[in-house]
Nucleic acid binder design. Structure first.
Lengths: 338, 338
DNA sequence: CTGTTAGCGCTTTCAT
DNA sequence: ATGAAAGCGCTAACAG
């Protein structure tokens, strides 16, 4: 490994001059600078960031913790985050928590050890509080994305749950539906709580009665959608919903699969709409009606917020950014479907 | 920040004893160990990896460079890589090269500065040679995934291009196609070369004449698929292909879109098959016939190879691992399509 | 404008 | 079994 000393010797200067040539070239005389630069080039010297970090207390390393990058929603968040990080000279460590607070905790421990400068995190849910407090204790800035955590003060960027649900409900109502079910995530996740609340409000706005039987919940990992759908369609005709609002893309896709298994036509026998677009590659055969959240921007702007926070270009007040979704109407809720 | 000195003071020992308590506890007397452990717990001490790296020359940091994580093929590679890295105690830096050797070069520079322990890389193409040589010069182990680079000796893990193409061609031939076009990536990428070669061989095996007119090429970034498709369908009837083999998922999806614009039915007027599955979430409405490469395993095993290489558990001989694809027959090449 | 000194937090080496 | 000294590669602070 080539060190600053090797360069110094070669250029006949002190290591300090080399350091300055790199970080404050204007403090160096023209010809010395030339000599140093040439030595650097000849030796292929690359400053060691571990050593720099040790003195500067900055690693220029950020982390994105998502629950699962395989979910296109999070894929795009990560992509957006990476683009912004690159733009600002940071690099990104990727972590998948798999909705497991324990796993999340281990990652955060490693990140702290690593001296990470900040974290963009989609927490696993309210159980993440302990982990976030750990970050706070270590004074590591973080921004929450997609999910908030009660009693944890921080910057937050997320989709607009109220608006999104309303788009979907209004659409279903326009299609003539009155009996609408919600298949929601666990209510340890802020999203789920907000979506349920928005769901009830939206129904009220449309003068449609809510029905507790139609509000179901599934864990995000290990969902047994068959059971849920069976329960729903086993209801007596007059109490059976004609449409399902799925609280995310996994739920939506699985719901349709389960319906299919039971030979229930979508949308004829049951319309389905959901949050997030399961299609990362712009699709040629779109089926599912969705409220597409601006995932890329969630990541990009979230990262921007984080970096502003890190570099102190932000006031002390925490910001919350809410980005609206786009309704994309497709076959699962309109014409003849599958 | 709590340092090893703080712990030492609290436990009434020297920093060295704390270090040993952490790394070689068996060298420490029972009761001293207890005291140290308690001090660590009370202070919430976490060893600083930057400092450790400085002396150990190991960062426990690995990088995955892919061209674009938004492509589900690469998403799964990264997911597999991350799982293996975690298992082995490493963390992962994510980089998107966007098929740009320049961008790749910048990343590699940063990674070297960071003292990265190794890189799993899907190179942009033959232009990556210079960048890989840079890694070699710095003695940073790397494993190529999905694409090889001529004159760069290294471990390699990739899908089986010959077998995959054969699966797709055999399928098309079974469906009665004789006029088969190939829309390929640029031949600066090993993949494209291998797929073209396999394409010609497979045709020969089926006693189907190849036709240079039917072998087309597109850049992976900024593809003008409309132009390509127009060119193809503008051919006089007797020289017009009835099926297209797309060399990857982006090409496949875009080809179908372009066909659609021209009101050419898939598969009635033109069958389409492709490499890679564009569906990350197991799909409920599958359309495209594909040779699905085992992306997750490419990442997982590639990472395993890399770590073995890093930890010296591997001979000097470079390994090449080729994993077979799975043919998934869907509507784009069989029954009535869109 | 350039150099010297000291120290970031840790571990290796040598003593005790 | 434990400690002291030295140094990993770099830069802040002070000198000159």
């Amino acid at each position: 490994m080539v060190t600053i000393h090797d360069v110094a010797k070669k250029a006949n200067v002190s290591p300090m001059t080399v350091s300055r040539a790199l970080n404050n070239p204007h403090l160096i005389r023209e010809d010395t600078l030339k000599r140093v630069e040439q030595a650097i080039a000849e030796l292929g010297y690359i400053p060691n960031k571990a050593a720099q970090s040790l003195v500067s207390k900055k690693t220029m390393l950020l982390s994105v913790i998502v629950t699962n990058i395989s979910n296109p929603f999070f894929t795009e968040i990560v992509r957006g985050a990476e683009d912004k990080a690159l733009q600002m000279g940071y690099q990104l460590i990727l972590n998948n928590s798999d909705e497991d607070p324990e796993k999340e905790s281990n990652y955060i421990h490693s990140l702290i050890a690593r001296g990470i400068d900040g974290v963009l995190i989609a927490p696993t849910g309210d159980q993440s509080r302990k982990n976030l407090r750990q970050l706070i204790k270590c004074r590591i800035p973080f921004v929450l994305v997609d999910r908030s955590v009660p009693d944890v003060a921080s910057d937050l960027i997320q989709g607009d749950n109220t608006q999104s649900v309303r788009l979907l409900i209004d659409h279903l109502v326009e299609q003539g539906h009155k009996n609408i079910a919600l298949i929601n995530g666990p209510d340890t996740i802020s999203n789920s709580r907000e979506r349920k609340k928005a769901f009830l409000e939206a129904l009220k706005l449309c003068d449609i009665p809510a029905n507790e039987e139609w509000i179901l919940q599934t864990p995000l990992i290990g969902m047994d959608m068959d059971r849920i759908i069976k329960k729903l369609v086993a209801l007596p005709p007059e109490r059976k919903p004609t449409a399902i609002l799925a609280a995310n893309n996994f739920i939506g896709v699985n719901a349709i699969k389960s319906l299919r298994k039971l030979n229930i036509g979508v949308p004829q026998d049951m319309a389905v709409v959901c949050f997030d677009d399961p299609e990362p590659i712009p699709d040629f055969n779109p089926f599912l009606t969705v409220a597409a959240q601006p995932a890329y921007n969630l990541g990009f702007l979230g990262m921007q917020l984080l970096i502003e926070r890190i570099e102190g270009r932000t006031t002390n007040l925490y910001q919350t950014i809410i980005l609206p979704s786009t309704l994309i109407v497709r076959k699962s809720s309109t014409s003849v479907g599958m």
